[in-house]
């Protein structure tokens, strides 16, 4: 979230609530809606690190609001982020640990684990299908996020199949 906020602030200075609204508007229903508390905590940390600064803007009838803007150091951090490839998924899968360790230690049977996990993945896929159906055709960002989740889930299922074939 730090870098999404920096990116939004590179466009124009904004206060916390505007940033929340911008994230919701761009990513739609497919993105975990950030809560305002998280946003203010993150902005506070960015300010402490010198990446953003805040100015108080007076409002009539209301307490002052803080408008944040990007510092030169913040701009550097954002450029570095944009220039780096993003880390791919790492196989540090909790289910895999369970699958390997549970039968060794007598906690659970491997076939039962695989069957339960397969049903769970398929239930998740059904949810994603329904969500895609409910999502507006024009909302490309949200639909692409859903499709990405589906492709990851398909890969998890394919991998589950490989485990089923190759684990003794």
């Amino acid at each position: 979230m730090r870098l999404s906020l920096l990116a939004l602030l590179a466009k124009e200075p904004a206060h916390g609530y505007e940033l929340k609204q911008a994230l919701e508007q761009i990513f739609g229903r497919a993105y975990p809606s950030p809560n305002i508390g998280q946003i203010y905590v993150t902005l506070g940390r960015l300010e402490k690190d010198g990446l953003v600064k805040a100015v108080d803007v007076e409002q009539s009838n209301r307490p002052n609001k803080k408008v944040y803007y990007l510092t030169a150091k913040g701009r550097e951090a954002l450029d570095a982020w944009a220039d780096e490839p993003t880390e791919g998924p790492r196989v540090r899968d909790e289910f895999f640990m369970k699958l390997v360790l549970a039968p060794m230690t007598g906690v659970a049977d491997r076939t039962a684990l695989i069957n339960r996990q397969r049903r769970h993945y398929l239930a998740l896929m059904r949810d994603l299908n329904e969500l895609a159906e409910r999502t507006d055709r024009g909302d490309r960002v949200a639909l692409l996020l859903i499709e990405g989740a589906m492709l990851h889930l398909q890969a998890d299922l394919d991998w589950l199949e490989r485990c089923q074939e190759d684990l003794p």
Binding site: A30, P32, R119, A123, L124, D127, L131, T135, A149
Partner: peptide
């Protein structure tokens, strides 16, 4: 067996899925 409902809290958006 049946593809059952997801075993966790119900939710309203894909946010949690993602």
């Amino acid at each position: 067996g049946a593809v059952g409902p997801v075993r966790r809290r119900p939710r309203a958006s894909a946010g949690d899925v993602v």
